[in-house]
């Protein structure tokens, strides 16, 4: 493409973004915009898929049939959400196989939160309440992202996901109102999941590698720190309501700001888990690889079955 028409395309792209309209798959877009989206959407998809693992750990041990049916439905949703997102990424010209390989070979990232273990039943409650709560804050913001297929996937996901947070809170509320041991279990889960949940929003704005460009292109609509603050503000009240204590001595209401102040995240831990050395990184990828390999025969059987049907139909026609 010659320089002049290239800059005309660029101007048109920027005008669409400036007008708060959506970029759609066949539109011209800067290569960096495309790459940025592929990275973000595929990471998001991987997070949904890997996110099934910590909760899947408790499906066979859920305390009641009601909780078990709920947990199954939730994990099933995560799988579906991964598929919506992979499909959105595929509209940008990257193949499903490539994305899966990138995850399994450790080239792609996913949300670090899923590298923490689920040690007790209360962890299932804490994940729904906190981890899904944080994800929803982020995803509601992303419903306004500038790329059409991503925005539409977010709308669908947010709608389906609202029960995830509510079921988690219901578990925590039930435990917190139970015996002393049950309440302690809920508090212990909150203690372990609180800080990793705050890390989900990513580094401080000043240190976030992709943030500035992503905000300019309206891929991201609110900054990491803004979203983190929003989550803290809404969650403090929810913890108080069930008599659980957020494990942060620095947490207090700031009248002047109209927000809660809170303590500093342990960024060394953040980096350690991000770089592959959290409690469960190797186990998670190992489990994904095993699932992928053990599922190979299903994919082969699907192709073989379709081929057989095709040959039968051809035989009948002849």
């Amino acid at each position: 493409m010659d320089h002049q028409s290239h800059s005309a395309e660029q101007a048109r792209f920027e005008a669409i973004i400036a007008a708060e309209e959506k970029i759609e798959p066949r539109d011209w877009m800067p290569e960096k915009y495309r790459r940025n989206l592929v990275r973000q959407i595929s990471q998001h998809a991987h997070s949904e898929v890997v996110g099934q693992l910590p909760e899947g750990n408790w499906i066979t041990r859920a305390p009641t049939l009601r909780r078990k049916a709920t947990l199954l439905a939730k994990v099933q949703d995560e799988a579906g959400h991964g598929l919506y997102l992979y499909s959105a990424a595929e509209t940008l010209g990257v193949s499903r196989e490539q994305m899966v390989d990138d995850l399994l070979d450790g080239r792609a990232k996913y949300a670090s939160i899923f590298n923490y273990p689920t040690l007790s039943w209360a962890d299932v409650g804490a994940i729904g309440w906190l981890v899904d709560g944080a994800a929803i804050v982020n995803q509601i913001s992303l419903c306004r992202t500038s790329y059409g297929p991503y925005a539409r996937a977010m709308v669908r996901i947010c709608k389906e996901e609202s029960f995830h947070q509510r079921q988690g809170y219901e578990i925590m509320r039930t435990l917190a109102a139970g015996s002393a041991a049950q309440k302690a279990m809920a508090q212990d889960a909150l203690n372990r999941w609180w800080w990793p949940t705050l890390m989900m929003f990513g580094p401080h704005d000043a240190e976030s590698a992709h943030s500035q460009q992503s905000m300019q292109w309206k891929i991201k609509r609110q900054s990491n720190d803004e979203l983190r603050q929003k989550f803290v503000d809404q969650t403090v009240e929810q913890a108080r309501h069930i008599g659980l204590e957020i494990p942060d001595p620095a947490l207090r209401w700031n009248e002047e700001r109209g927000h809660y102040d809170f303590g500093e995240i342990d960024w060394d831990e953040f980096q350690r888990v991000l770089n592959g050395n959290g409690p469960c990184n190797r186990q998670r990828i190992g489990d994904r690889r095993a699932a992928h390999e053990q599922g190979a025969w299903v994919r082969e059987a699907m192709l073989a079955h379709a081929e057989k049907q095709r040959r039968r139909a051809a035989g009948r026609a002849a």
Partner: peptide
């Protein structure tokens, strides 16, 4: 019959905005 796939199935106080 899978009403538990809907948010209204869960008993949480409405004022908490969950």
């Amino acid at each position: 019959d899978k009403v538990y796939r809907h948010p209204t199935f869960y008993d949480v106080p409405e004022e908490l905005k969950l």
